[in-house]
């Protein structure tokens, strides 16, 4: 392959990694703070894409303001869901899982009712290409890499340097110990849901600018998100990042070399092989 093709497929891989990481971070945050595998996370993501779509098409927003508004709005949906659907079932993962499954159906059907089942699309304002050393790079993918990894750094700083961030770490490691320090678990759970859902909306907003959106787009995102966190290590933020990088690069680079089907197989084969050697995931604790 020539340089440009390699660089482009690498960038492709990184862009996909960025999306996977954003989705997986939300799942990880909610899992480690609330103890719930939030399997309607894919639907939250889907709602994010539809919000961006309608803000652009019906409310006349341009892409970036639409993305910001959609992100904040979906974050607030997350806070609402935590309060109404998840808080009553905290400490009862089986029922929380049932709630989460019901939410998949509820949210999908609301969107089907409001928007119909036909795929929709909007385009990225980041058109054009960037030339570096004779390599051609598409802006609409580069921007995903920049935003995705930028948000990752912000999240890291938030967790490392704010009180609420430290409280999140504390809850994820020792819930009762955290409560005994006076950490308000309700409040921190709401923050975790806000952040997790907002990150999913950012990912979906960008995905919608590359591909079409539909009410069922969430299942693919959920599948990838779950694969990423299992690969990286459940409940570990660093794990979500490493897992997302690996799966994103496999999914982004391999199709350019082999077929799409082979790439899909390799992705899951890689997960199985890594888990054989590290059952706790790459970055998981024991």
């Amino acid at each position: 392959m020539e340089m440009t093709a390699i660089a482009q497929s690498l960038l492709n891989g990184l862009a996909i990694s960025g999306i996977y990481i954003l989705i997986a971070l939300g799942l990880t945050l909610v899992l480690s703070i609330m103890g719930i595998v939030q399997i309607s996370h894919g639907e939250i993501y889907m709602v994010g894409a539809y919000c961006v779509y309608y803000l652009i098409k019906s409310a006349g927003f341009s892409f970036i303001p639409a993305l910001i508004v959609a992100t904040l709005f979906v974050g607030c949906i997350g806070v609402f869901l935590e309060r109404v659907f998840f808080r009553p079932f905290r400490g009862d993962p089986d029922r929380a899982m049932t709630v989460s499954i019901s939410l998949i159906l509820i949210i999908q059907n609301i969107v089907l009712f409001l928007a119909g089942g036909n795929p929709k699309s909007y385009s990225s304002p980041f058109t054009g290409v960037l030339f570096i050393f004779g390599i051609v790079i598409a802006w609409k993918r580069l921007i995903i890499v920049i935003v995705g990894f930028g948000l990752l750094v912000l999240l890291f700083l938030f967790i490392r340097y704010t009180k609420t961030g430290q409280a999140m770490l504390a809850i994820s490691q020792e819930r009762e110990g955290a409560a005994l320090q006076g950490i308000n678990i309700d409040f921190v759970s709401a923050v975790a849901m806000f952040l997790g859902c907002a990150l999913a909306a950012v990912a979906a907003g960008f995905i919608g600018s590359l591909f079409s959106i539909s009410p069922t787009m969430g299942s693919f995102a959920l599948m990838k998100g779950i694969a990423v966190i299992i690969l990286g290590g459940l409940g570990s933020i660093a794990g979500a990042v490493i897992g997302g990088l690996i799966l994103g690069l496999i999914d982004g680079v391999l199709p350019a070399i082999t077929s799409t089907y082979t790439a899909g197989l390799v992705g899951f084969a890689a997960i199985i092989i890594i888990l054989l050697f590290r059952p706790q995931g790459i970055w998981g604790h024991e």
Partner: peptide, 23 residues
């Protein structure tokens, strides 16, 4: 000070101590 200590095992001593002053 709970039974079994209930420390934050993957945080360092300093971070554990600081979380005591959370409020």
């Amino acid at each position: 000070v709970p039974e079994g200590r209930k420390l934050f095992p993957y945080m360092n001593v300093m971070s554990n101590i600081k979380l005591g002053a959370y409020l």
